[in-house]
C-alpha cells in the first residue's frame, strides 16, 4: 500500500494546478503550514525515537550500573555491555549462545510446522468442498479468538503425563513448541486461506486440463504464487517462538532449555537488582534486532496482507 509508486504517481497529479480565483495552487503548502506540520511531525518522531534512543545509549554507556541522569549520548561509548551479556547473560551458568540456540530451535519448530501443516489445510479450505468444512472453519475461528493462555492449564497437565524414560515432554522445548503451535496453527491456516482465496482458480484449472494432478497443481502453481503470504506466516510463527515467554516459563525446569525471553524476565523490575542496566539494554537489543530487521524487510507484505484482510473483514 505504501509503495514508492503510489507516492510518485500522486505527484504529477498534484502538480497540475487547478487555479481558482484568489486561492493558491493546489498541492502546494504555504510556508507557514509546512513549518507547522514539520514541527508537529518532528515532535511525534521524537516520542517514537525516545525509548529506542534511551535503550541504545544505555547499552553503550557502561560507566554506571544504574543510569543516574538522562544521558542520550554516552561520554565513552563501548560495546562492553554486549560482550558481558554474550559471555554470561544471567546468574545462571547458561551461555548466551545456548539461550539463543534454544530460542532459535523453538522459533524454527513453530515456524516450519505452522506453515507446512497450515498451507495444506488452507488450500483445502480455500479450494475444496468437503463434509464438515463450515464447521471446521468456525471451530478454527473460535480458537483464534481465544488467547493462547486459555489452554495453559490443560496443556500443562496433559503434556506432563507424557513421560518416556527420563524424558518429560512438558519439560522440553518440543513440549513448549507444541503448546505454542496449538494457538499458532489456526492463525496460520486463517491467514494463508485469506490469501489463497485471492489467487484465480483458472490457473489451476488450466493445469489440470493439461493432466496435472491436484497435488501437482498445488505444488507448481499455488505454492510459488503464495510465497509472500508463506513468508509472512512463517515469520509470524518465528516471532511467536522467538519471543515466547509464558509457556516456556511455566513448562521448563532445566536451565539448559531456557530461552532468551526467559532470561530477559530476570533482568526486569524487582529482579533487576543484580543486573547492570547497560546489560539489560544490550540484551534487549540483541533479542529484538533479528526479528525487527526482518520485519522491516517484510513490512510491505505484512501490511498489504493486513489491509486486504481488513477490507475483506
Amino acid at each position: 500500500m505504501i509503495t514508492p509508486n503510489a507516492l510518485t504517481t500522486s505527484n504529477p497529479a498534484a502538480a497540475v494546478p487547478t487555479v481558482a480565483a484568489g486561492t493558491r495552487h493546489k498541492g502546494e503548502l504555504s510556508l507557514r503550514r509546512q513549518i507547522l506540520y514539520q514541527i508537529l511531525l518532528l515532535a511525534i518522531a521524537v516520542t517514537v525515537l525516545f525509548p529506542i534512543a534511551w535503550v541504545v545509549s544505555m547499552s553503550l554507556d557502561t560507566t554506571n550500573a544504574r543510569p543516574t541522569g538522562l544521558n542520550l549520548i554516552p561520554a565513552n561509548p563501548s560495546f562492553d555491555a554486549y560482550r558481558t551479556v554474550i559471555a554470561q547473560p544471567t546468574q545462571n551458568p547458561v551461555s548466551f549462545v545456548q539461550l539463543a540456540l534454544n530460542s532459535l530451535l523453538l522459533a524454527a519448530m513453530i515456524s516450519i510446522l505452522s506453515v507446512t501443516i497450515g498451507v495444506l489445510a488452507a488450500y483445502a479450505f480455500s479450494r475444496m468442498h468437503f463434509h464438515g468444512r463450515e464447521f471446521l472453519m468456525l471451530a478454527i475461528l473460535a480458537v483464534l479468538m481465544l488467547p493462547a493462555i486459555a489452554t495453559l492449564a490443560p496443556l500443562y497437565v496433559m503434556l506432563n503425563k507424557v513421560v518416556v524414560g527420563g524424558f518429560n515432554l512438558r519439560d522440553s522445548l518440543i513440549g513448549v513448541a507444541l503448546a505454542v503451535l496449538a494457538g499458532q496453527l489456526p492463525f496460520a491456516i486463517w491467514n494463508m486461506k485469506g490469501y489463497l482465496d485471492t489467487i484465480p482458480r483458472e490457473l489451476e484449472e488450466a493445469a489440470t486440463m493439461d493432466g496435472a494432478s491436484r497435488l501437482q497443481a498445488f505444488i507448481r502453481i499455488i505454492l510459488p504464487l503464495s510465497t509472500p503470504v508463506i513468508a509472512v506466516t512463517a515469520f509470524f510463527g518465528f516471532i511467536a517462538g522467538w519471543t515466547e515467554f509464558y509457556f516456556s516459563w511455566q513448562f521448563l525446569d532445566h536451565e539448559q532449555n531456557f530461552t532468551l525471553a526467559m532470561a530477559l524476565n530476570g533482568m526486569v523490575g524487582q529482579y533487576a537488582g543484580s543486573t547492570p542496566w547497560s546489560s539489560f539494554a544490550a540484551f534487549s537489543i540483541l533479542v529484538a534486532l533479528p526479528v525487527s530487521v526482518v520485519y522491516l524487510f517484510l513490512q510491505r507484505y505484512i501490511i498489504s496482507g493486513l489491509t486486504i484482510g481488513g477490507v475483506k473483514g
Binding site: 501443516i117 489445510a121 480458537v143 496453527l185
Partner: peptide, 13 residues
C-alpha cells in the same frame, strides 16, 4: 490435505 492439520489440532487444540 486436511489430515495433518486435523490430527495436530485435534490433539493439541
Amino acid at each position: 490435505f486436511m489430515l495433518p492439520a486435523l490430527l495436530v489440532m485435534a490433539v493439541i487444540t
